[in-house]
Amino acid sequence: MGNFCESETRLLKRWSNFQLPNRFLKIGWAIIIGTFLLMIAKKFVDEPSWVKPLLRNIMILGFLMVSISREKIEDEFVASLRAISYRLAIVIGVLYALVQPYVTYAVELLLDPDSAKVDDGYFQVLLYILLVQILFFNVLKRSYK
């Protein structure tokens, strides 16, 4: 059991530094801009229902690419800025996702009370992100004992 945990921790530490090469930064932005333009263009043509979710997912992949691509010079200062930005992103992201459905609900309540409902679609993603963060934090903390 001990060996299993140690190998898992070693794997985690190795993957925690994973980043894409710097060229993926440009590729990521190209994907984001490309999907954004396609989303605008599709408003003027009839398209199957799967196009919109597919474009959204590709756009998210583009953002992920930008997020995990190395800077030209990826040094410890950049790493510290990256850590701060991820921390802020998680906290602000969670708070936004918690508040936003209620704002939408309030607006819908004013405009069309019959169809107003609170959308809790973010629950799974929020819970998953926070559980994974807490799990990894504790695994890493234990590995330095």
Binding site: D75, E76, F77
Partner: peptide, 17 residues
């Protein structure tokens, strides 16, 4: 092997190396 921004931030006491 670091960026100029890193040196500048250390000099201005905005980053502790």
């Amino acid at each position: 092997g670091v960026s100029r921004q890193t040196i500048n931030s250390i000099e201005k006491n905005r980053y502790v190396p």
